[in-house]
Design a protein around this nucleic acid. Structure first.
Length: 582
RNA sequence: GCCCCGGUAGCUCAGUUGGAUAGAGCACCGGAUUUCUAAUCCGGGGGUCACAGGUUCGAAUCCUGUCCGGGGUACCA
């Protein structure tokens, strides 16, 4: 609808242009807005005010000339010039009525667009280290990423979702040793546990699995270990020694067995949690695979060939400061170990090499320092950093009513995503996570998310959907049959104020999807759905739908059927269900 | 110090990318349907858009500075 008006304005401008006026805007630049105030009509354009300066004329006069040259259209009832030079459009009633036909015809595809041009796009999100279960911070990234993926699919992007698995490096080693120590404890209660090892209960479960599967295979004489743990040293140094000791006494093969048991166990629980949360990935990309197939080395070599690498203090550095980063970064440490950053470069290189034109990363806000160095690395490898879009998600703080719940990953006392889903349900969790702008800190109130009351926006929207379903059930009980409207004249009775308002909202949906998608802001859709539900509830309270008159009843049923469709389409993008009964 | 994000009603937050008289929910006060689900609807009060300048027809929105809050600034991941 907006686009039709844009086209009309553009035609009018061309007429003026042929009369010798200099027009500096293109059609895409013509801005049309939904009027906030009904007194200002349905749509408004500031075109005349934007152009006035370059044409060197009075905006109101220009607006006059534009409207005079507007081609005739069935859409428009009349136009008006207001204020400093706004052009207000008042639409014919049946221009809105046709939306119902469009929605009922298109069904689930109503709201789709093609602006993505099938561009091959990779979205990487969650990517939590597989060293423990997902917690509520990861939940926000999961909900946000999934919503973005859905929105971009709806707008015609060719989307792939990927989870990068950090199955290598020191954290994995600590995990392995943690499991091994718990396993040894199950054989000898005397052994104490290193203070900075992973302490969560899931480690003990993995240790039990190891015992079941491999019996005593990994039990070693542990006097050395006790000595090691007894020493008065920094915990970090201690655990590194323990890792070395473990690898050498068990041998690399056995060490990998333990590591892979941990990895399989944790990764499968992560996959389970995400799938329960309604979040699916096309691919799980392993960091270890990049190291094993030499990609990381090749990548460093490539950088080296281009003179982006130098040696200092026994380490290998990347000259990122020459490419916009605030300082140079280490790729290979003094001890010969590659940094996480090194494999991350190889990973991002692979994204380009796999042919993705657009690369979206969703990271926790604490990673924002990484943005410049990743972009710098791609620039150094001759890939366009603008193709990478990094979206940051701020932390979520949990509340139970007024009480703030403290979390600490170290001690293992965190609230897991699974616990959250169990407590408040998938629907409320998904909705609450995306209700705030991604860059905004999120206060997540468990009480509110759980409450089956008017305070809870999820239920408010779902209730609108269920209510409509209920109307159709009532219709059957009353012995009516629904004849879905097929032509505009079937809807001619939809003229009441609340009906017009509802129609207007329904017509807006495709724009909401498009705006939410290009701005990466699913919360726009959440707010829209709240408004739409409100429009429906208000209408429902004022007007009886199941009336005697066949024409009116069918028109109203078509209208609420279309409303139901849009609510369902919208909630689907957010990963929230649309119950038929509540 | 430097970088990123934020500051809008008592609370939690929107604000259509610079538009007309700044909005919603909660809370508070008052009302509606003996009805297709009251998990609903309607009305009311409540604001120096952190502060000060600037840009222009027009600023909560853009630029500069200041203040406050959160995060980041590793040969950690």
């Amino acid at each position: 609808m907006k686009k039709q008006l844009q086209a009309l304005l553009d035609q009018s401008l061309r007429v003026l242009e042929s009369e010798g006026m200099v027009i500096t805007v293109k059609q895409d630049d013509i801005k049309i807005e939904y009027s906030r105030d009904p007194l200002h009509g349905d749509f408004a354009s500031n075109l005349a005010m934007v152009l006035a300066k370059s044409c060197n004329c009075n905006p109101r006069e220009l607006a006059n000339r534009i409207t005079e040259n507007l081609p005739k259209s069935d859409l428009i009832k009349r136009t008006e010039i207001a204020g400093p030079g706004f052009i207000n459009f008042f639409l014919n009633q049946n221009s809105y009525q046709s939306v119902v036909l469009e929605i009922l015809e298109k069904g689930e595809t109503y709201g789709n667009s093609k602006i993505g041009d099938n561009q091959s796009t990779l979205i990487e999100f969650v990517s939590a280290n597989p060293t423990g279960p997902l917690h509520i911070g990861h939940g926000r990234g999961a909900a946000y990423g999934a919503a973005i993926a859905n929105l971009l699919k709806k707008t015609g992007f060719n989307i792939h979702c990927e989870y990068y698995v950090n199955d290598s490096g020191r954290q994995m080693d600590i995990l392995t040793v943690s499991a091994w120590m718990r396993y040894l404890q199950q054989h000898d209660k005397e052994i104490c546990f290193p203070e900075n090892a992973y302490k969560g209960h899931y480690i003990t479960d993995i240790a039990a699995d190891l015992k079941n599967k491999y019996a005593n295979k990994f039990v070693t004489p542990h006097k050395d270990i006790l000595d090691l743990l007894d020493k008065k040293e920094e915990a970090d140094i201690k655990i590194d020694k323990l890792i070395k000791h473990c690898a050498s006494i068990l041998g690399m093969e056995n060490y990998r067995l333990i590591l892979e048991t941990c990895l399989d166990s944790i990764l499968s629980s992560i996959k389970n949690d995400l799938s329960e949360f309604g979040v699916e990935f096309n691919n799980w990309y392993s960091e270890y695979s990049l190291l094993k197939n030499n990609s990381v080395n090749q990548c460093i070599a490539k950088l080296n060939d281009r003179s982006w690498v130098y040696q200092k203090d026994g380490a290998e550095w990347f000259r990122s400061s020459k490419l916009g980063d605030e300082k140079d970064r280490v790729l290979v440490r003094e001890n010969g170990q590659k940094t996480y950053f090194a494999s991350d470069i190889a990973y991002h290189l692979s994204k380009f090499e796999r042919g993705y034109k657009k690369i979206i990363n969703i990271w926790g806000a604490d990673h924002h320092g990484y943005i410049e160095r990743i972009k710098a690395s791609m620039k150094a490898l001759d890939y366009p950093p603008e193709a990478i879009r990094i979206l940051l998600v701020q932390f979520a703080t949990l509340f139970r009513g007024k009480e703030k719940l403290q979390m600490s990953t170290r001690s293992g006392e965190f609230i897991t995503l699974k616990e959250l889903i169990n407590e408040v349900g998938k629907d409320a969790a998904r909705f609450f996570y995306i209700m705030r702008k991604n860059e905004q800190h999120l206060d997540f109130d468990l009480e509110l998310a759980k409450s089956e009351s008017n305070d809870n926006p999820v239920y408010y929207i779902q209730y609108a959907h269920a209510r409509i379903c209920s109307v159709f059930r009532q219709m059957n009980e009353k012995g009516y049959t629904f004849f879905q409207s097929k032509k505009l004249s079937d809807l001619s009775t939809l003229t009441e104020d609340h009906e017009i308002k509802l129609l207007r909202s329904l017509a807006k949906y495709p724009d909401v999807i498009e705006n939410a998608a290009v701005a990466f802001e699913p919360h726009q859709l959440a707010y829209y759905l709240k408004d739409l539900a409100n429009d429906f509830h208000t209408y429902y309270n004022v007007n009886q739908i199941l009336v005697e008159d066949d024409l009116i009843r069918n028109a109203r049923l078509s209208l609420v059927d279309a409303t139901r469709q849009v609510i369902r389409n919208g909630l689907l993008q957010l990963g929230v269900s649309s119950p038929e009964k509540m």
